[in-house]
């Protein structure tokens, strides 16, 4: 069935998944314009988990677990297109490298991390060992780094590697519970996560390795994304998107859609691509 697609107005938006749809909330400065929140995409037969945004072609990418697949659609309006449809069991986290024009995802049943070109070609497994419940994945394109979480109840961890899977290292393994969400802020070079087990939001500078708590007592975070001074996360208990001022370390706003069901992945759809380039973009 043809889903209805509402083109997004210009500006920066939050995009998040609520089972059968991808919703957006426009941002004005750092404030959510809640009254203008609307579904971008209705996919009523699907359960959408992860969302990612390509700032170059203004496309949203998502993972779906009902008939496991990865698809994309233009946020300016257009038909959804399947990108990956075979050999997936439970695709969850998804990330776009807008410079290298590639797509990364985690599969929590196959327990691996894969990469492909944005059209689905040149698919390759880059990590297939020591993963139990891989979930969130994000890219840092200018530096060529990849970050992901594994909420393995026996040994949760946050890991990093280069974008080809080499130079893999564990960044965080102590005092973690269920690190469901992960985000990287290119301006501050901070990697932040939301943990549904410890109920904390924390950040680290991956190169320096220092660790700092942003907030504690959060309820049940699933997805998380950053934009400037704010971090936004989806919460399974509250069925809401919660805004946190990461410097003040406290909640500043929340958006609760009318429909009360679980919210999953969330991402920031930038009005323009963040500045920076890397080797792959040049060559």
């Amino acid at each position: 069935p043809r889903p209805d697609v509402h083109p997004l107005p210009p500006g920066t938006h939050l995009l998040f998944a609520q089972s059968g749809r991808i919703e957006h909330v426009p941002l004005e400065g750092h404030d959510m314009k809640k009254e203008d929140a609307k579904a971008v995409l209705h996919l009523p037969e699907k359960v959408i988990i992860g969302v990612a945004y390509d700032c170059v072609e203004k496309m949203v990418y998502w993972t779906e677990i009902t008939s496991p697949s990865i698809s994309k659609a233009s946020i300016q309006g257009g038909e959804p297109t399947e990108v990956i449809r075979s050999d997936l069991d439970s695709p969850e986290g998804i990330a776009v490298d807008h410079l290298g024009r590639t797509l990364f995802w985690t599969d929590s049943v196959k327990d691996r991390i894969e990469v492909a070109s944005l059209d689905g070609s040149q698919r390759r497994v880059i990590i297939d060992s020591d993963l139990v419940n891989p979930r969130a994945i994000i890219t840092d394109p200018p530096n060529g780094n990849l970050y992901w979480t594994d909420w393995n109840r026996d040994a949760p961890k946050i890991e990093t590697s280069y974008m080809d899977g080499s130079n893999r290292r564990v960044l965080v393994k102590d005092d973690l519970g269920l690190p469901n969400g992960l985000t990287y802020d290119p301006q501050s070079s901070m990697l932040c996560w939301a943990d549904a087990g410890t109920h904390k939001m924390e950040c680290t500078h991956p190169a320096r390795g220092d660790r700092r708590q942003v907030m504690e007592g959060i309820q049940y975070p699933f997805g998380i994304t950053s934009f400037g001074k704010n971090i936004y996360y989806t919460d399974w208990r509250r069925d809401a998107v919660v805004a946190v001022d990461r410097y003040a370390g406290k909640e500043s706003d929340q958006f609760q859609p009318q429909k009360r069901t679980k919210l999953y992945g969330i991402t920031t759809a930038y009005a323009q691509c963040p500045s920076g380039q890397n080797y792959c973009a040049v060559n």
Partner: peptide, 24 residues
Amino acid sequence: ETGQVVCTNCPAGRTGMRCQMCED
């Protein structure tokens, strides 16, 4: 464009065009 009708606020636990499916 298509005239298709989609239910937008299905009862708890349900989803789909006509709320014919169960949620995750």
